[in-house]
């Protein structure tokens, strides 16, 4: 594994994107930053701009309007960049499957590396998911 990749896995800055969610996943994502969970231990930081991001945390059921932006934003992320789908909505739209405003599941829009199910997933689950992702990326190299 190259040094740069190693560094990437030790300092993944996350950018959080919501595509029409109930907010719970977003709140739990933010919760990861707070004292009880403190993802800065693993070098993770919440990035302000998408251009600084290494990991996209996508939540929500893929609302028509946000999905359009999501596609454009995916182009803007400096690669390598990983995508984590947080929550049942992001994984499969869950309860919103039949909604007129959520036509497609997330992974038909951008490539998703890891799914973290739950409504909402607990912060521990989110951290675990990201860690698993890191392990997978690290292992595949």
């Amino acid at each position: 594994m190259s040094l740069k990749l190693k560094a990437l896995l030790k300092s993944p800055w996350v950018f959080h994107l919501s595509t029409g969610s109930c907010n719970n996943c977003d709140i739990e994502t933010l919760d990861c930053l707070t004292p009880r969970f403190d993802i800065e231990r693993f070098g993770m930081l919440l990035a302000g701009s998408i251009k600084h991001a290494d990991v996209l945390l996508v939540t929500g059921s893929g609302n028509r309007m946000s999905v359009e932006r999501l596609k454009a934003l995916w182009e803007q992320v400096p690669k390598p960049c990983l995508v984590v789908a947080i929550g049942t909505c992001a994984a499969s739209r869950g309860i919103f499957k039949d909604s007129y405003n959520c036509p497609q599941p997330l992974d038909q829009i951008i490539p998703v590396d890891v799914y973290i199910p739950g409504c909402p997933p607990k912060p521990e689950a989110i951290i675990a998911g990201v860690v698993k992702l890191i392990e997978r990326v690290g292992g595949s190299q």
Binding site: S49, R69, L70, A72, L73
Partner: peptide
């Protein structure tokens, strides 16, 4: 380097 749209919150 790759040329991409500026990031203004997803709008263009």
């Amino acid at each position: 380097a790759r040329i991409v749209a500026p990031f203004i919150g997803g709008e263009t």
